[in-house]
């Protein structure tokens, strides 16, 4: 019984990690879905960054990452999960935690936020899900 409790505790801890790693296949599927949506911005002249952010979204808690954005550029952050019944949200905050005025796109398991900073600096990117269960995710960045 103690062993079961310990295992449950470890699993609960793993579920609470901020963006813990996703499995290989899930990461590939999520990345493909994010790239599919990000293709819309590419048609508008946005360049895609090679690096992506992948992981597992904890239940009922956003995954948060710091990004350095440059004034004058425009950015799109596109997120996707392979959990079809989940609704994702992408939000951007200043380094002090205040939400910025960003364009928003939400379509169930894919979502994006577009932002044109007037000030260069650190911003915080938030990815969250509505389903209440951990799901894998991938975020791709585009800029112009």
């Amino acid at each position: 019984m103690i062993r079961t409790s310990l295992i449950a505790l470890l699993l609960a801890f793993a579920g609470n990690l901020n963006g813990s790693p996703a499995s290989g296949d899930a990461a590939v599927t999520c990345r493909r879905a994010a790239l599919d949506l990000a293709g819309a911005w590419a048609n508008d002249g946005f360049r895609l960054r090679e690096h992506t952010w992948s992981g597992t979204l904890p239940a009922d808690k956003p995954a948060l990452a710091r990004v350095n954005l440059l004034a004058g550029n425009r950015y799109w952050f596109t997120a996707a999960t392979n959990a079809a019944s989940t609704t994702l949200a992408v939000q951007i905050f200043t380094e002090r935690g205040t939400p910025v005025a960003a364009e928003s796109h939400r379509d169930g398991p894919v979502a994006a936020a577009g932002f044109a900073p007037t000030t260069s600096g650190t911003y915080i990117l938030s990815i969250s899900e509505s389903g209440g269960t951990p799901v894998p995710f991938c975020v791709v960045t585009s800029y112009k």
């Binding site: 952010w53 004034a71 004058g72």
Partner: peptide, 30 residues
């Protein structure tokens, strides 16, 4: 409209090399 982040959340936000460092392309584009 989203709520502001809490202090704990701000502290938790990860610095990821893959995401957090602008590329030369971004800098020159700006």
């Amino acid at each position: 409209s989203p709520q502001s982040l809490t202090e704990d959340q701000i502290r938790e936000a990860q610095f990821l090399e893959s995401l957090s460092i602008p590329t030369p392309g971004e800098l020159f584009a700006a």
